[in-house]
Design a protein around this nucleic acid. Structure first.
Lengths: 244, 244
DNA sequence: TAAATAGTGTCTATGAGACATTATGTA
DNA sequence: TACATAATGTCTCATAGACACTATTTA
């Protein structure tokens, strides 16, 4: 049997413990929030109202809340990311896929002071994207297309953050159910196929994609939904992601 | 044309800028250093000499050095990880694969104060592992087998960190050249196959593995090395990773 | 010559890519 | 009826898994 932790001795140590006064960095979370609007993959950016990089586009984000002492240590990183998402978009974090991406901590990435940024990426279903309103301290927010962002001057190292996020999403598209977070609750096979085409930036063969889709059907990952999607020609069968 | 940054106005802003005195977390790097010894995948752990978790095994690591002001912002995260690797093992970071893993920042993961840990994983070639000497402030370091670590009491959330690292290494084994960082400079096909077996914890079919190996040969990823590896029976052809 | 292990070959199932064809709706 | 596009089918190729078999060295 192992003795319980913390021991009485450890408790005493903790009571007497005083952190040394070494300089500490600020820690922020930055969000790469993707959605698809008008058949384009886009990320949400906000225009910086203050120096540094005043007037440039930047990723939404903010500092992690850290408590005053050992008993009050503040919020978890995931909590901070979800809180920022809520504050900056007004969206319910429970309805958005959000996931830690990478941590960017190069010295001098922020000219004001040392800032280490834990980046997250999020996927917003296109039917929710229109409800996004720039919240709180940001007056200007826009869903800019990825290819446009690549040509745009961005604050800090945010271009690199977006690039990293894009690569992650592309990678996970193959083996995870991440694509379902970029379509409305119900979708047709061609609609889901378009998501793949747009994110991967290459045409997907309708026949081959259907096979992949049918495997997901057989695996019980998705199921048929009532009704048909009316198009300019033959209506398409409608499906939905099977929550379980 | 975009105007040069920082502008005169921004420079002035930065000179006047004084960071608000919000509490900040400490930021550490922790290392999951893997190697293979005696046909077992192992990670390096050090015995904690001080509270908290005194006497428990913990991952090597340390705090990121942060400068005093905006001009002196300290070391990069990667630099901190490489420095800790060097300090704790004596190994040359240039000869070790090291890569950012995940950031662990749960509140109260350290009872002393808020600590956010950027975890890295490293792969040490087995021929280098014996030279590892516990350095500096750690008196006791050991290469403990993974399955033993899973049953061992570990400090902080380090069990979760190791688990995350293991999953990452297993995942990357399939599609990256990461396996070459776990064999000596020259190796035979059965030797490389054993690495896969050990890391993935499942037997690999010799015939099928050879096919995969031959594809890497054709791709120019590896090349034959002079000599033969003497075994208890038929000697094996020796190969090496093709640096380029 | 026996034992051990390096190395080869074969059969089958699966999935991806390219592409032709059919089915079913709307205008 | 013409058109658009949803939906199906087919051929080929690359790869993985299971497994039988051959080759070459040591003891």
């Amino acid at each position: 049997m192992s003795s319980p932790r913390p021991s009485a001795e450890e408790k005493q140590f903790l009571e007497k413990y005083r952190p040394k006064d070494y300089p500490r960095p600020s820690v922020a979370v930055d969000l790469v929030i993707f959605t698809i609007i008008d058949a384009q993959l886009r990320a949400l950016v906000v225009k910086r109202q203050e120096h540094p990089f005043k007037g440039d586009w930047a990723l939404p984000g903010g500092f992690v809340r850290v408590g005053e002492g050992p008993k009050e240590q503040g919020e978890d990183l995931d909590t901070a990311a979800r809180r920022e998402l809520q504050e900056e978009t007004g969206l319910d974090p429970d309805r958005v896929h959000i996931e830690q991406l990478f941590t960017f901590g190069r010295a001098n990435r922020d000219p004001r002071m040392r800032v280490i940024s834990v980046a997250y990426f999020a996927l917003v279903r296109p039917d929710l994207a229109p409800f996004v309103k720039a919240g709180g301290d940001v007056s200007h927010a826009e869903w800019l297309p990825i290819d446009q962002l690549k040509k745009t001057e961005l604050a800090f190292d945010h271009r690199e953050v977006i690039e990293t996020g894009l690569n992650r999403v592309r990678g996970k598209l193959e083996y995870s159910g991440i694509a379902f977070d970029l379509v409305p609750l119900t979708f047709t096979i061609p609609e889901l196929r378009h998501v793949y085409s747009i994110v991967l930036d290459k045409e997907m063969d309708p026949g081959n994609f259907r096979r992949k889709f049918n495997r997901m059907l057989e695996d019980g990952l998705i199921e048929q939904a009532p009704g048909k999607r009316i198009t300019a020609s033959k209506p398409a069968t409608v499906y939905r992601f099977k929550r379980r």
